[in-house]
Amino acid sequence: MRINAVAFVPSAPLLVPAVAGGSAALDDDLRSAAVDVTRRLHESDEIIVAAPTDHAGEWGSEATWSFAGFGVPRRPSPAGAVLPWSLGIGAWLLEASGWSGPRRYLGIGAEPWSTPAATAGNVGLLVVGDGSSRRTEKAPGHLDDRAAGFDASIARALAGGDPVALGRIDPELATDLMCAGAPVWRWLAAALGDDRPTTADLLVDDARYGVGYFVAGWRFG
């Protein structure tokens, strides 16, 4: 698998306007940044969406998103398999960014991870996941004083193009801090092996709802 670009986006359901409802516009900045960084993957021949899921799995281009389990009415008669919601966010971002090329969806469950089948050409990875959900008193997991430092180290790794640091995320601490992104970032570090990005930039690093949101892009070669 020749990875030529990676885009990092949050796994917040409210990124999808139909989920956010009347408050969607309040997060247009976050949504636009996520769509913009997804669009950078359009130079690739294929895009693989990777997201944390309860069980590992792989889905093809025909799979589609639904947020019915969050109480959002399902789109009229979705064709194909319905993705787990975290991958659905990636699928929605691909659609919002205008991508109509080949794509696959990888649900990153527990270790050991399987490596997706290699394909010819360049692969762009859309990595869906976020930092601690315990950044503030009002956060989904309430405040944990360790969360800010934990997320700061992730932000540094994303800004510095440092997959080794992502691979070193402590899974137990990540679980304590309700960090949804840890498994997928650690998977990414393993998938990249010795590859290092030539450029890296971090577009968003905030915790507006107590969850660490990151938007970042890496380019290789």
Partner: peptide, 12 residues
């Protein structure tokens, strides 16, 4: 005393 976070129900 925990908050719901991205809770999914096939049929709540």
């Amino acid at each position: 005393r925990t908050r719901p976070h991205r809770v999914w129900y096939d049929d709540v």
